[in-house]
Structure formats: structure tokens, C-alpha cells
Design a protein around this nucleic acid. Structure first.
Lengths: 173, 173
DNA sequence: CTAATATCAGCGCTACTGAGATCT
DNA sequence: CAGATCTCAGTATCGCTGATATTA
């Protein structure tokens, strides 16, 4: 078994032998795996017309909230780590594609509420199933036991990195 | 322990209970960890003046080759998955920063060779040490045994995804 | 002649910043 | 009045495409 990182580490061992490359064996692979998975999942989303990278994130964020699949732009922006200006652009795109719509917020006349249209609900539900299927295919070589092990360690790592889930971003949903 | 993905999965269990979210426990965490690590490492690179995302990749690619730290733009572009046009832009930036320089390729008068300047060698060597230190800090909570386990599983995963290391990209080096 | 190398100009995409209008 | 919400215009980053000149 010789992946991309194996070669990297070999290079550094030759060029900078005093460098401790043990962390690279983990971090390098994590980054590499993340890139490949993200790329493959983006391709799946694109098959559902979601060729703009962050669009699926917005749709799934709304979908995950449950009916009536509605949220303010500000809170959506926080959820996907975007400025409100950036969210305006994204929502314009999604609204033009008829996947979301805006309506005035009845409880705050400064604001608006964004909600999934019927089309948007259909697209996100279909896309999500395809995404999950692709995820399953991507990690198909890992046994149930290995999955539990790696998920546990990554969870520990995320927690140690301060990840609490207040801000839910990307990562398919 | 409750990270970002824990909340995600709980949302989907409520909204789409028939969906098998087990792959998301792994893939979601891999993506999330990758994002966080990349972000933190980018910040370290920025401290060395490498605020443009792909710049460190080019410098490390040259550094890893050993003296005289030299390569053609085409091969560099392949190594970091970039078009030659994109590489021209990057090299212009790096050359303006006096980190690399170009000279005519003596063996092919169509081409040029890019090499690390003395400044470039200093910067990449210093940045690399800082990157490795940051990596160590980031995964500090994992024991040696856990690191070996996760590195092994990720290597298996990368191999199954077709990663062979012909094209060495990003991922710190 | 075909293919490869590097560059350049023009384009597209995406997000950010800061200003402005509205409202709490 | 301070602060929040959203939008908009302008700007920046970054890579790609396709054309070009040169050489293998």
C-alpha cells in the first residue's frame, strides 16, 4: 500500500531527515482524503444542478430544520460561515433557480425569511440520497468496525479542536 | 463528546429517519476535520508571507526534489493539479516575492526552469518547521497507537480511492 | 507538419468590504 | 441613538480557456 503521503514522507526523510514526519502521516492523509471526498461529492451535487459549491449546504441547512424549512439569511450565513453579503448572492442564485424563495419576516420588518420551494425540497431530497449513496461507495472498503473506530477518533479530534456544532457547515448537510 | 456531525446526524434522523447516516459519521467528520486543519495550516503559512493558498505547495514541491530545487512549470502544474496558465500566474506571484526565479532550460529552448531562490529556501524551510509543529499541536490528543491506526486506515482508504501519489498536491508538502 | 512549452489576455466565479435603507 | 437586518456596488482572489510564439 503506497498512497500519496507515503511518497511525501519519503521525500522529507531524504531532504530533511531531522524533521519528525509522524504527524504528517495523519494530517497529510486527512487533508488528502478530505480533498478527494469533497471533489467526488461536489460532482454528485452537480448532477442535481447544484454546481455552485455552497448551494447544497444552504439547501440542506434549510431541509434539516424541518417544516416549514425556513430561516433568516443572517442565521443561514452564520451556519455556513459566510458574510451576510455573500449569503445574499447565494440566495439570489438559488432563488433564480427556483429552489428557495424569500418572504417578509412577519415578526421583524427589517428581515426576510428564506424557505425551500417545492422544487427545492425535491432537489435536496433527491440529491441527499445520491450523496449518501456516494459516501457509502467511497468508504466501502472500511468494515463496520473500522468505521466505528475512525468515527470515534475523528470525533475526539473534532472535540479537541473546539468543534461543537453551533456552526454547522458544509460537509454534506 | 458531541461534535458538529453528531448534531447533523441527529437532524437527519429526525427529518429523514429512513436514511442510513452511518457513512456520514465517517465522511462528514473527515470533511469537517479536513476543513479545520486546512484552515489552521493556511494561517501558519500566512505568517510566513504565504497568504496565497497554493504558494506553499509550489515551494514545498521544489524543496522536496532536493538540490538544485528546480523544475519545469509544466511538471509543477501537474504536481499541484493546475493548468499551465494557472501555474504561470502563481509563479509570477512567487517570483515577484523573490521566492523563486526562472531561467531558460538549457536542454529545451521552449521551456524554462523554476528554482527556489535563497529567500525561497529559507522561507520554505522555516514555514515547514512551523507547519509540522502546528500539525503536532492539532493532533496532540491522539496517542501514538491511535495515530498509527488512523494513518493505516486512511492509507487503505486512499489506496482504494485510487490515490497513488503520481500527482502530489497540497496537503503540506 | 504535429505536438509540446510557456505566456498572456479575457472571462467567470465566488466571496468580501463598506455604504445605505429600514427597522428594533 | 445604538444596534440589527438585508441588499447592493465595487473590489479582490484565483483559476480556466483559448490564442500566440517558439521550439522539438
Amino acid at each position: 500500500m503506497s498512497d500519496y503521503v507515503t511518497g511525501l514522507v519519503a521525500d522529507w526523510a531524504r531532504e530533511r531527515p531531522e524533521l519528525d514526519t509522524s504527524s504528517m502521516e495523519v494530517v497529510g492523509r486527512l487533508l488528502r482524503v478530505g480533498q478527494i471526498l469533497q471533489h467526488r461529492l461536489d460532482a454528485v451535487a452537480a448532477r442535481y444542478g447544484l454546481s455552485h459549491k455552497g448551494d447544497l449546504d444552504v439547501l440542506t441547512a434549510l431541509r434539516r430544520m424541518g417544516p416549514p424549512y425556513e430561516q433568516t439569511p443572517s442565521r443561514l450565513a452564520k451556519g455556513v460561515q459566510l458574510t451576510t453579503g455573500g449569503m445574499t448572492n447565494r440566495l439570489d442564485r438559488l432563488e433564480a433557480a427556483n429552489l428557495v424563495a424569500r418572504r417578509p419576516d412577519p415578526s421583524d420588518r427589517r428581515g426576510v425569511l428564506v424557505y425551500l420551494t417545492d422544487d427545492g425540497q425535491r432537489v435536496v431530497d433527491n440529491a441527499l440520497e445520491a450523496i449518501v449513496a456516494e459516501q457509502e461507495a467511497l468508504i466501502g472498503t472500511l468494515s463496520a468496525r473500522e468505521r466505528a473506530t475512525i468515527a470515534g477518533m475523528l470525533g475526539q479530534l473534532l472535540t479537541s479542536l473546539g468543534d461543537r456544532g453551533e456552526e454547522r457547515v458544509g460537509a454534506v448537510g
